[in-house]
């Protein structure tokens, strides 16, 4: 390693390091800026005079007596009932992850272990389904859901998100299952397990890394979704992202943009924590698909 570094010419090292620094700044700065600004008043964060105000916060001090204020958060969480949409988000994401993984591990296992040709066609079909823009599917749901009177409820959104998530989950788990030797479930079957017992007692215990990684991506899909939750959930059942979108419509006129900024930061915080703890799994998940596919 040391030998290698010595061989690298200095200008190149400087150039590539600068480039990386620049990128890190580009990637991280917007978040840091917004988190910082969310504790200011609107006149500071969206200052007409100088953006320097957003850093020092003179008006925040003038209005609240301190350089930092939680008014935005108070407004969003308490006054605008962001709290209930957080609860809805938790219900939706947890259910979507659990159901997706249950369906996905079963299906992915079947696809990885069946040697017949139709598995190929099913995977191709899943790829086409994966490419469907979510909003086109939503436009297919709305009318039937109205007619069946199931529009607006959380379970409806959950099962829809599970289905939309399936193609991706299947692909990913399929490639993880392929990396588990067939000998394992076959010896379990010879030892006296049925196919399902072999799956449950022998394969799943060694599949945890793959399941966790896939679960993370299911979580991200459900958490980040806007098209489905915005169109399929009624006002009181809204999750965070559509809630933030609906803030935009009303708050701008009232001059309470800071509510939205606070909500945005609140919605981003869990993702920060997620990346911090599961960085390795996210990276391996992104590449698992690439290496196999």
């Amino acid at each position: 390693m040391i030998v290698k570094k010595r061989r690298r010419p200095l200008p190149l090292t400087v150039l590539s390091t600068t480039f990386v620094l620049l990128w890190v700044l580009m990637a991280a700065f917007p978040f840091i800026w917004t988190v910082w600004g969310s504790f200011k008043v609107e006149q500071d964060f969206f200052s007409r005079d100088s953006w320097w105000f957003a850093i020092e916060g003179p008006r925040t001090i003038a209005q609240t007596g301190s350089a930092f204020t939680g008014d935005g958060y108070y407004g969003a969480w308490v006054l605008r009932d962001f709290f209930s949409s957080v609860v809805n988000t938790i219900i939706v994401t947890v259910s979507v992850v659990v159901i997706s993984l249950t369906f996905g591990t079963l299906g992915g296992y079947a696809l990885a272990r069946s040697g017949y040709r139709y598995t190929f066609w099913l995977l191709m079909l899943a790829l086409v389904f994966r490419a469907m823009p979510h909003i086109t599917l939503v436009s297919g749901y709305l009318l039937p859901f109205f007619e069946m009177n199931i529009w607006g409820h959380l379970p409806t959104a959950i099962i829809v998100l599970v289905a939309i998530n399936q193609p991706f989950t299947l692909w990913m788990l399929h490639s993880f299952f392929l990396s588990i030797p067939k000998d394992l479930d076959e010896s379990a079957m010879v030892d006296g397990c049925s196919r399902f017992q072999a799956f449950r007692m022998v394969v799943i215990p060694v599949m945890w890394p793959g399941v966790i990684t896939t679960g993370l991506f299911s979580f991200l899909l459900a958490y980040n979704d806007f098209a489905v939750t915005a169109m399929l959930l009624s006002q009181p059942n809204q999750t965070m992202v559509p809630k933030i979108a609906s803030f935009l419509g009303t708050i701008q006129q009232e001059g309470n943009v800071m509510f939205a900024v606070a909500a945005v930061v609140s919605a981003t915080a869990p993702l920060f924590v997620l990346v911090m703890f599961f960085q390795r799994q996210i990276v391996s998940g992104l590449t698992a698909g690439a290496v196999k596919g």
Binding site: T102, F103, Y116, A126, L137, G140, V162, A163, Q166
Partner: peptide, 22 residues
């Protein structure tokens, strides 16, 4: 095979294939 893949396949057919028809 079909017993294992049924839940997943059903979900995809009902909520992806059928909506396309719809």
């Amino acid at each position: 095979f079909f017993a294992f893949i049924m839940p997943s396949l059903l979900a995809m057919l009902l909520f992806i294939a059928l909506p396309i028809v719809s």
